[in-house]
Simulated assay, not measured.
Amino acid sequence: MYINKHRIFGLDIIRALAILLVLCSHSTLLLFPNNTEFYITVVQFFGTVGVDLFFVLSGYLIGGILLKQINQGKTKFKDFLYFWIRRWFRTLPNYFLILVINILLFYFLHERVIESIAYFFVFLQNFSGPYPDFFTESWSLSIEEYAYILGPLILFLLIAFFKNISKKVLYITMLLVIIITITLLRINFHLNHDIVSHHDWSRHVRKVVIYRIDSIYYGFLAAFLAHAYYASWQYYKKMFFVLGSVLFLGIHSYIFLFKAQPENSQLFYNVFYLPLLSISLLFFFPFFSTWKTGKLFKNLITRISVLSYALYLINYSIVLLTIQYFIEVESKPIMVKLFILLAYWFLSFGLSHLLFKYFENPMTKLRDLKIFKQ
């Protein structure tokens, strides 16, 4: 398996934790699709946190790449184009392959193609409205793709028009423009829409591009702080960990103690909850970025991290929904459920390994061809 020697183990822990949270959450949807008991809801909640971990981690890593590019004086359009090419070779091949497989699988099982399928090929399926009930993992990929395009493009334009201003100042300006704009869009949504349930809020706010891409740019901000104030970032890592824990537990204690839900606490959910969640998760990054451990544990975590993108794309729409189509899982005895659960995890990891080894990794390596560096 291809493992880059420059990987940061602590960030691999975050990535592995994020995908494992998602898989655990989806496991409850497989076994107990209609169960709303408290412990099931808690597991599913941590699955949503896993996706937010992916968002802030992506922003942290991509923001760091942009800052390195700025420090090296690579701020011409061809430099930003090469940045996009590298991201697209990392993300798009897997996405389009799994999208086509989903289309074929859906047609085989249901003998039809969903409406507006073309939107999925340009990441418009959830740009400004609720996502369709198809290939549901794609909602987060749309957010990431637009975040990769929007921020660097604004940064390039700022550098081109304000040549005498520090590029790091322009980097912060780009972040503030995007974060403030997205916040205003959520405020506008709050003032003009009524949320009737958590599911309604999730479809119309949490999973919509124009209300969510700021989550990734909080990661960009953390990358800037880590680079500009590295000594403090490391020295106060335990304090940041405590602050992150207090903030994370605080906002969710508020939800639990006051039974706050999107329908009765709309301002909190529409405007404040998602940014506070992102910030609380980022407080853990200084601590994890220096985490070290034994070789065996390290190899396991790194391998899960390497497979995380393939796992995210495959585990639900392809594996879980196919199992549910052929088997009425919820009514099965506990031992049968356990077997089905093991099959779900085995198929998810097995297919992800094949996808990574024979498609994702070879496609990613193409970005290093000389033709793209010229």
Rank of each mutant, 00 (worst) to 15 (best):
V49M: 09
L247D: 02
Q324R: 12
G59T: 01
L338Q: 09
Y358K: 12
I13K: 02
F83L: 03
V42K: 14
Y119Q: 09
S331P: 08
P362A: 15
S142L: 01
I3G: 03
P262Q: 08
L30D: 07
V169A: 14
S253A: 08
N164C: 07
F45G: 12
H199S: 15
L221I: 04
L109C: 02
I195V: 15
L67A: 13
S25R: 02
S265I: 01
N188S: 15
Y316G: 07
L53N: 09
L67T: 06
L99H: 06
F272M: 15
Y254H: 10
R112E: 13
P130N: 13
L21Y: 09
Y344N: 06
F120L: 10
L276M: 03
L30A: 07
P275R: 01
P33N: 01
I85L: 08
F54M: 13
I323E: 03
K168V: 14
I279V: 12
Y171V: 13
L153R: 02
H26V: 13
G151V: 05
V56K: 00
I172R: 14
S348M: 07
A310G: 02
L170I: 04
F258P: 14
W345D: 03
L61E: 04
S305R: 08
F349T: 11
N188F: 15
Q234W: 02
F120S: 05
K163W: 06
I14N: 02
E145T: 05
L157T: 00
T41F: 10
L341K: 07
G151C: 12
Y39Q: 11
I251A: 01
M335D: 14
F123S: 05
I213G: 13
G244S: 10
L105R: 05
N264A: 07
F80Y: 12
Y230D: 01
F120D: 00
K292N: 12
F224H: 08
E145G: 02
N35E: 08
P286S: 07
V177S: 13
R303K: 05
T136S: 02
G10A: 00
Y254W: 12
I255K: 10
L31W: 11
S215R: 00
H204Y: 03
T75N: 01
I8W: 05
L300C: 06
L342H: 10
F288K: 08
Q69L: 11
S232W: 06
E37L: 12
H353A: 05
H199W: 08
W233M: 05
I318S: 02
A18C: 01
K5L: 09
K295M: 08
F123C: 07
